[in-house]
Design a binder for these strands. Structure first.
Length: 423
RNA sequence: GGAGAAUUGGCAGAGUGGUCGAAUGCGGCAGUCUUGAAAACUGUUGUGCGGCAACGUACCGGGGGUUCGAAUCCCUCAUUCUCCGCCA
């Protein structure tokens, strides 16, 4: 959630910044400022009414203690109207607060200056590209056929047991999955992240803290009996470990990593986009999360991007990095770098990681703060990135490292999976 | 799942419905003393919101209620501990 102070003090920057997303929030901003003005007036009215009430109550108390019961009773009579008035003021005050809050919740994060203007993914900016796309002199297969051919993923078994989008990994496929998780976690630990194993379900407050609620509850699986949600990414439990915290500046950045399955309903997705491993309802991911001070968050984002680059190079996959345009940027992000791996057989790029600086957007909601050198309380910046999402890594490995009768493992992965080749 | 006890400031721990934002101790910060440090002593020390400020207001696990007035009474939820049951 955007800070109200930012709208008060830098309204033009906010309005102009959001134009990059193709949004015009000029009217909303004016509405907020107007309500904010009313809110402040109401706050003063309410506070002085309460002050008056407190004063009278105190006097009544003193009268009782002095044994002047009649005077006290008389004073009680006078409070009725005042009490009613302060009740009304309280209601009006919280109504205003709610209105402002609702409007603020609907304003996405203001994009960083580097974010290109644009409406759709076609306007994303390719900022880096590496690796060679292999050419095959045999009939190269897409990963779903390779997976079936080498009996490492069973799609029908998943449909039978659960439904579409919940495949079983088997044999070398299961070991590949397990090896990748360990590989990614070890690399994250080497980069200074602390490893957590988080809960895979979260409560409402956590959903609100990271921004899944109140808008996107339809994208999460719900455990209605207990009012819990299956996590769509371990970013949610990881960032929420810091909810409401006041951290020491010298402890920043706080760097957390976790492996978790991710559950997404993906309502409305269909067709070739969801074929094979392209889009699943449950998939595994190793996530990176960081809380930093305001000054160094962009340097930390660069480090995170470097880390992910390193992973893809060790996996010997052709990839590119996109800077998302305003229209493609998620609501909470100020900037996002997407990593895409090339799917040789599908002849398309698959998103495999997304590294974002959310700045204060989550920290403001969850009141995650630190004190700077002058002793001023400031909101942290939070960052998150995938390192990496497993299914598309597997798709990439299968398709790019295939030959006529098998799939070669990248060297870095061999000690983790315990074999050099799937065949 | 059943029964009981508890939840107070960074921590520990008081708190009869009315000068309680909250005793006291520890810790923190500043100072005195000291060549320096420790000890001792003195002072100071929660957070949010509004306000130029004075100040006001809110916060004693969360939410609701009773009352002129709630940390204190009632309801409800959550969490922790003890006992019983069940169980990987």
């Amino acid at each position: 959630m955007i800070e109200i102070s930012r709208i008060r003090e830098q309204k033009d920057e906010v309005v102009n910044g959001l134009k990059v997303r193709g949004l015009d929030v000029a009217t909303e901003v004016e509405q907020i400022l107007n309500l904010d003005k009313q809110w402040r007036t109401k706050k003063q009215e309410m506070d002085s009414a309460l002050a008056e009430m407190n004063q009278i109550s105190k006097e009544i108390g003193q009268l009782f203690q002095q044994g002047k019961k009649d005077e006290a009773e008389a004073a009680k009579q006078k409070t009725g109207e005042l009490k009613e008035r302060s009740q009304t003021l309280k209601t009006e005050f919280s109504d205003l607060e709610k209105q402002i809050n609702d409007l603020l919740l609907n304003i996405p994060n203001v994009p960083n200056k580097l974010v290109p203007e644009g409406a759709t993914e076609d306007d994303n900016e390719v900022v880096f590209e590496k690796g060679t796309i292999p050419t095959f002199d045999f009939n190269a297969l897409p990963h779903w056929d390779l997976a079936t051919k080498y009996d490492i993923i069973d799609w029908e078994m998943g449909v039978k047991v659960t439904g579409a989008g919940f495949p079983f990994y088997k044999n070398q496929g299961a070991r590949l999955q397990r090896g990748l998780i360990n590989f990614f976690l070890d690399e994250a630990i080497k980069a200074g992240y602390s490893e957590y194993v988080p809960p895979f379900v979260i409560n409402e407050d956590s959903g609100y803290g990271t921004g899944q609620l109140p808008d996107k509850e339809g994208q999460m699986y719900q455990v209605t009996a207990d009012n819990l949600y299956l996590i769509p990414t371990s970013e949610v439990p990881l960032v929420n470990t810091l909810r409401g915290d006041r951290v020491k500046k010298e402890d920043l950045p706080i760097k957390l990593t976790a492996y978790s399955p991710c559950f997404r309903r993906e309502a409305g997705s269909y067709g070739k986009d969801v074929r094979g491993l392209n889009r699943l309802h449950q998939f595994d991911k190793v996530e990176l999360v960081m809380a930093s001070d305001q000054e160094s968050s962009y340097q930390e984002l660069d480090k995170m991007v470097e880390h992910v680059k390193g992973l893809l190079e060790k996996l010997e996959l052709p990839y590119r990095i996109l800077r998302l345009c305003g229209g493609d940027l998620g609501v909470t992000a100020a900037i996002t770098y997407d990593f895409e791996v090339y799917s040789t057989a599908q002849e398309r790029w698959l998103e495999i990681s997304s590294c974002s600086n959310v700045e204060t957007y989550q920290a403001n909601r969850m009141k995650l703060r630190y004190k700077d050198e002058e002793g001023n309380t400031k909101l942290c910046h939070t960052l998150n990135g995938s390192a990496l999402a497993l299914p598309r890594v597997i798709a990439g490995i299968l398709e790019n490292h295939q030959d006529a009768n098998g799939i070669n493992m990248p060297k870095a992965l061999v000690p983790y999976v315990g074999f050099e080749r799937i065949q």
